[in-house]
Amino acid sequence: MNKFYTAQEVADKLKIKKTTVYELIKRGELSSSKIGKQLRVSEDQLSLYLNGAAKNSVSAQHHDYQPESSLLKRDYLLHSSGLIISGQASPALDLLLNQLPSTPGNLPVLQSHMNTYNGLYSLYFEKVHIACAAAAPEDVRSLVPGLSLTALLFCQYPMGFYVKKGNPRNIHDFPDLTRADIIFANREKGSSRRVLLDRTLKSSGISPESISGYRNELVSDYSTAAAVAGGQADVALGESYAVRSFPELTFLPLTQETLYLIMHSENLDTPGFQAVTETISSENFRRTLALQTGYDTTHTGEIFSI
């Protein structure tokens, strides 16, 4: 029987800190499973990580360096007993993982905590089965070229600025980020928020170096919102849902973002993948997600080829 370990139990086995275990999971080096609201690492996942680390150590000792593509394309999927879905913390993804077990034909789901860019990159190198990504179809095609892909529309939600209640700094648009009295809390490269920011700055002719705080990267909407709430920054870019946890903040909508599940088209009709599409397309899922988050689920469950 496949055992499951807590982060602390994994830390004890590897003789490392618990925080290091979470960092390995966040970077996608150690796969994990979500059981209820808790992260667990199975015995098989831990063995895969240890085997990979041992192989890397041997290669380094003999200076037998493989091409990057070979290093990335390990046999994670061949040894997986379920679906590996990449995606950062999201109420939509959390709801899917909670409802999947009650859908006929479901498989165990292992969540790999990666942002949009790294998730699509991992889909290309066959490290994940499904990438949860907020990216336009043309961006997906450029990151995952030459493959037949299917996109399942997950949900849509507003993107905008987090500012203090009453907007005391009078921040309204991207040019305001360049003001000398404004400190920005940025997201990490590869996140959809960072892609939106960098793309907008380039199209507007705004230099990133003119923005105080641009180089200070945080890894979630909650962490950037907390920076604004705590006074370490004046503004951050993220989705509206995160503001619910910070009553001292106001959300200023700027645009709308669409979240997709991206997968290889050939897998769409296989049992585990069917359970994912059936869950998301169900009226119960759409209604619950809309009520819990306020997300737009009008097109949730729509499927199209990329």
Rank of each mutant, 00 (worst) to 15 (best):
S112N: 08
Y117P: 07
T224C: 05
H129Y: 01
I280L: 02
N284L: 12
T258P: 02
A180C: 11
V235M: 06
L218V: 07
R286S: 06
V10R: 00
T19K: 12
T255C: 11
I25Y: 03
L24N: 09
A275K: 03
Y241C: 07
Y260D: 06
H264G: 11
D139W: 10
V128M: 06
A60K: 15
S223I: 07
Y76T: 14
V243Q: 09
P271G: 07
Q274K: 09
L39N: 12
Y162L: 11
T279I: 00
S265I: 11
L77V: 10
S207Q: 07
L218S: 03
L97C: 02
A233I: 01
T279N: 02
L71G: 13
V21A: 04
T19W: 09
L201D: 09
H299T: 12
I262D: 03
E209N: 15
L72F: 10
I16E: 08
L46K: 03
L237A: 02
G160H: 03
G119M: 02
P168S: 01
D12S: 09
R194V: 04
E278M: 05
L83N: 00
E302C: 11
R141Q: 06
Y162P: 03
K15R: 14
N115R: 00
P91L: 02
S282C: 05
Y22R: 06
V243E: 04
K164F: 03
P67T: 09
N284P: 00
F154P: 00
R199V: 12
S57E: 13
S80Y: 08
F154C: 06
N170V: 10
K55V: 13
F285I: 05
S282R: 01
G160D: 02
P247N: 06
K15S: 15
I211R: 01
